[in-house]
Amino acid sequence: MKKFGNFNIAALVIGFSFLYIPIILLILFSFNESRLVTVWGGFSTKWYGELMQNQGIKDAAWVTIKVAFVSSTVATILGTIAGLVMTRFGNFRGRTLFSGMIYAPMVMPEVIIGLSTLLMFVALAVDRGVFTVTLAHITFSMCYVAVVIQSRMSSYDDSITEAALDLGCTPFRTFILITLPIILPAVISGWLLSFTLSLDDLVIASFTSGPGSTTLPMKIYSMVRLGVTPEINAVSTILVGLVTLGVISASIIGRRQKQNIIKV
């Protein structure tokens, strides 16, 4: 065995400090009494209270939650089907294009996706709003779900499905009774991933939203442009906390199923 040397310890300590110190400082300064983000004025939760008074942020949060909930649910259904198609349907005609459309949105710059989706909505005279943001979020989230499902599907034995089909079980019943329970942890992490992707998205939402459908990241972005304030730190801390909770619960669900790596 190669030993775990000083270099490895140093890489981990420095690497994780780099990854975490900015977030820790951000959280710390959300509890700062002073309005200045660099001077510690004592512990206070007043910025959270101020947040609760901010109607703009509350409206944006509500829009974001609605969009994230609907888009992640639809994306999970579509993405699960897509993952199934990628792994269990062999070489059908047009498969290369299909897998291209699954992988491309994951790396494609968001400005391109945002612009193209918006231009289509404008050309087809679709009113921009919560609905269009949701459609755009479903489209890129389902690709992530498909990849999560795909990596789960390709790592278990398929003979049990074949046995069910041979014994006369219909494909749909086979999916519900056998495949779905096996891939359920991946379906749940796919849903959680879609939810956070939608919750976090600024660029695509900025292109596809209309009046009255400002999402939380859009609201935060416009506040950041005006300057750094403890209020932004407070709303960020809440979001970071929610995501942390989600990731930890997803990993517990995953570990229970002895499958804990979320591959990209």
């Binding site: 977030i23 300064f29 660099t38 750094v228 990731v247």
Partner: peptide
């Protein structure tokens, strides 16, 4: 898990954290 956590955390927030 410590690697995955920032991957899930908002891009905007992580960029914002560097401004301060």
């Amino acid at each position: 898990m410590l690697v995955i956590l920032p991957f899930w955390t908002s891009f905007l927030i992580r960029v914002y954290a560097w401004i301060g």
